[in-house]
Lab assay of single mutants.
Amino acid sequence: MAAGGDHGSPDSYRSPLASRYASPEMCFVFSDRYKFRTWRQLWLWLAEAEQTLGLPITDEQIQEMKSNLENIDFKMAAEEEKRLRHDVMAHVHTFGHCCPKAAGIIHLGATSCYVGDNTDLIILRNALDLLLPKLARVISRLADFAKERASLPTLGFTHFQPAQLTTVGKRCCLWIQDLCMDLQNLKRVRDDLRFRGVKGTTGTQASFLQLFEGDDHKVEQLDKMVTEKAGFKRAFIITGQTYTRKVDIEVLSVLASLGASVHKICTDIRLLANLKEMEEPFEKQQIGSSAMPYKRNPMRSERCCSLARHLMTLVMDPLQTASVQWFERTLDDSANRRICLAEAFLTADTILNTLQNISEGLVVYPKVIERRIRQELPFMATENIIMAMVKAGGSRQDCHEKIRVLSQQAASVVKQEGGDNDLIERIQVDAYFSPIHSQLDHLLDPSSFTGRASQQVQRFLEEEVYPLLKPYESVMKVKAELCL
């Protein structure tokens, strides 16, 4: 049975990233139509530049190519590739079939990587351009969430054990800070992308030097003109047959890092959902379990974690691919890159769409948070109580021993009897502590235990987050809708 299948058929496997999760716009960027249309555009740009620099290419040939950029006979191309065992030459023939007058000058002087690699770089750039505003929107939604809850005390956790208090907004800023680093890295790697350009079979530009009869300047002009037509500021000066596969490492490393950030955020949300302090959106008709109707599973956060793990592992592909590119190139890269580049971007696209949807509907339960604080705060307040007693004339050592005994009794009630923490009640009825009984409410005010959390939130948002989001103001209103 021949390899390949009808990918629109229910009898043929289709990647869930495309069929179930990723956005239509990201799927289109990695589609065959987008790819092969870009090949034709690159052939047109090459012909236009070659004509401008004096090669015998007519206006009629150029116009014929322009008129057929979208006229792609995919069936013919597939048949040609089956016959020739070469995808680029299959599309040269297919393009030439609908451009008979231009057929002889299509791909003039070029090698397969002229269309293959340059198209990949265009796709990487455009895919990054799709991700950047999506990530900015996630940051914006979380920034709104953090600002609104900047002063809401909550129990902090280290080692997932109760620690000092923080605020809900401050905790959210930990998430935002990681995503801001990801946004900066995505922008950097996007701006650092260079075009492969017009380089020939081993990167020496020998074929173009021959076409222009040894004119170095025209060869350099050709490279520059096509690079500018493709919208790049610069091209690699040095290439082998391909652009260095280190570029793929750079791009997928940034995406993998984004995956790590999203995994951490969504894990926190899942843990908070278990504590009943916070939940992701839950639709009115949504079913959490087929057997347990009360369940409210954090399905979206779980999906993000599941896909983020996949995204983090994909960076190993370009690392290994770059390491086995012998001399000017081997074909070890080809099949692998067809999979890992598309999957990385479709996965990143999915987790950003999902995280935006989550961040637009996060639900906080202040009463649950308050109750958990009441359970733990008495123990945390013991040092403040000791200091207040010393100020009232008591002995630190005597007070410490009193607190120690009462704390152990209260802990026994919590752990052995399943009761509430009654340390404060014990202190309130103990005559030894009568000098500070009137101060206990103040000493137990949760806001006095959150330090500068709310001020940190305000400063972080104003100095770091809002300036970073400013270039994306025009796209901030787009909502994230999930079908599944």
Rank of each mutant, 00 (worst) to 15 (best):
G5H: 04
G8T: 15
S9M: 13
D11A: 07
A18G: 14
A22G: 11
V29I: 04
F30C: 14
R37D: 09
R37F: 10
T38K: 13
W39C: 15
R40G: 09
Q41P: 04
Q41A: 12
W43H: 06
L44C: 08
W45K: 14
W45S: 13
A47T: 10
A47C: 05
A47L: 03
E48Q: 08
E48K: 02
E48F: 01
E50L: 10
Q51D: 01
T52R: 11
P56C: 06
I57H: 06
T58P: 06
D59P: 07
D59M: 06
Q61E: 05
E64K: 07
E64W: 08
L69T: 04
I72C: 06
D73Q: 02
F74W: 09
F74D: 15
K75T: 09
K75H: 01
A78D: 05
A78W: 02
E81H: 08
R83F: 09
H86T: 00
H86L: 01
D87G: 05
M89R: 01
F95I: 01
F95Q: 06
F95A: 12
H97V: 15
K101G: 09
A102P: 04
A103L: 13
G104H: 12
H107F: 04
H107D: 01
A110G: 14
T111K: 01
S112G: 11
S112W: 00
C113M: 06
V115A: 04
G116R: 05
D117S: 03
N118Q: 00
T119L: 08
T119I: 13
D120R: 11
I122Y: 07
I123C: 13
L124V: 08
A127T: 05
L128I: 04
D129V: 14
L132K: 09
L132Q: 08
P133R: 14
R137A: 11
R137F: 15
S140M: 14
R141G: 14
R141N: 14
R141E: 11
D144W: 11
F145Y: 12
F145H: 06
F145N: 13
K147Q: 15
E148R: 04
R149W: 12
S151W: 12
P153R: 02
T154A: 04
T154D: 13
G156T: 03
F157T: 04
T158L: 00
T158F: 03
Q161D: 00
Q161A: 10
P162L: 12
Q164F: 06
L165T: 02
T166C: 10
R171W: 05
L174H: 08
W175R: 02
W175P: 00
W175V: 05
I176G: 05
D178S: 13
L179Y: 04
C180D: 01
D182L: 03
D182P: 07
L183K: 08
Q184E: 15
K187R: 14
K187S: 15
R188E: 06
V189P: 11
D192E: 13
L193D: 04
L193P: 03
R194G: 12
F195M: 15
R196G: 09
R196H: 15
G197M: 02
G197K: 02
V198R: 03
G200W: 01
G200L: 03
T201H: 07
G203Q: 01
S207N: 00
F208Q: 05
F208K: 01
E213N: 06
D215H: 07
V219H: 07
E220H: 11
L222Y: 00
D223M: 05
M225H: 09
G231I: 03
R234Q: 03
F236W: 13
I237V: 12
I238R: 01
T239N: 02
G240M: 07
Q241Y: 01
T242G: 07
Y243P: 15
K246C: 06
I249N: 08
E250N: 09
L252G: 11
L252V: 11
L252I: 10
S257G: 13
L258Y: 09
A260M: 13
A260F: 08
S261D: 02
V262G: 09
H263Y: 05
T267I: 13
D268M: 06
R270E: 00
A273H: 13
K276G: 07
E277F: 06
M278T: 05
E279I: 03
E280N: 00
E283H: 10
Q285K: 06
Q286R: 01
I287Y: 00
G288K: 01
S289V: 01
S290F: 03
S290R: 02
A291I: 05
M292A: 03
Y294R: 01
K295R: 00
R296T: 11
N297I: 00
M299F: 10
R300F: 02
S301Y: 01
E302Q: 00
E302A: 01
C305F: 01
S306N: 03
S306F: 01
L307A: 11
L307I: 08
L307Y: 02
A308W: 01
T313K: 03
L314H: 15
V315C: 05
D317T: 08
D317L: 06
P318F: 07
A322K: 04
S323R: 04
S323W: 00
V324Y: 02
Q325A: 08
W326N: 08
W326Y: 14
R329V: 02
T330P: 01
D333Q: 00
S334M: 03
A335L: 03
A335S: 11
N336H: 02
N336F: 01
N336K: 06
R338A: 01
L341N: 02
L341F: 09
E343T: 09
A344H: 07
A348L: 09
D349I: 06
T350Q: 14
I351N: 00
L352A: 07
N353E: 10
T354G: 12
L355F: 14
L355T: 06
L355Q: 04
N357D: 09
I358V: 06
I358G: 06
E360G: 09
G361A: 14
Y365S: 13
Y365D: 12
P366S: 05
P366Q: 08
V368D: 02
I369M: 10
E370V: 03
E370L: 05
R371A: 11
I373Y: 03
Q375S: 14
Q375W: 07
P378W: 00
P378D: 03
P378H: 03
F379I: 05
M380L: 09
A381R: 05
E383K: 01
E383F: 02
E383M: 06
E383D: 06
A388K: 03
A392Y: 06
G393I: 09
G394Q: 06
Q397T: 11
D398A: 12
H400T: 02
K402E: 06
K402I: 12
K402D: 15
R404I: 00
V405Y: 07
L406R: 07
L406F: 14
Q408W: 06
Q409N: 11
A410I: 01
S412R: 11
S412M: 06
V413I: 12
V413A: 09
V414W: 11
V414I: 11
V414T: 15
K415D: 05
K415R: 09
K415I: 11
K415E: 12
E417P: 01
E417M: 12
N421A: 09
I424P: 14
I427G: 06
I427L: 15
D430V: 10
P435S: 10
I436L: 12
H437S: 11
L440G: 05
L443V: 15
S448P: 08
F449G: 04
A453K: 03
Q455V: 11
F460P: 02
L461S: 03
E462Q: 11
Y466N: 14
P467W: 09
P471E: 14
E473F: 08
E473G: 14
E473I: 09
V475R: 13
A480S: 15
C483Y: 06
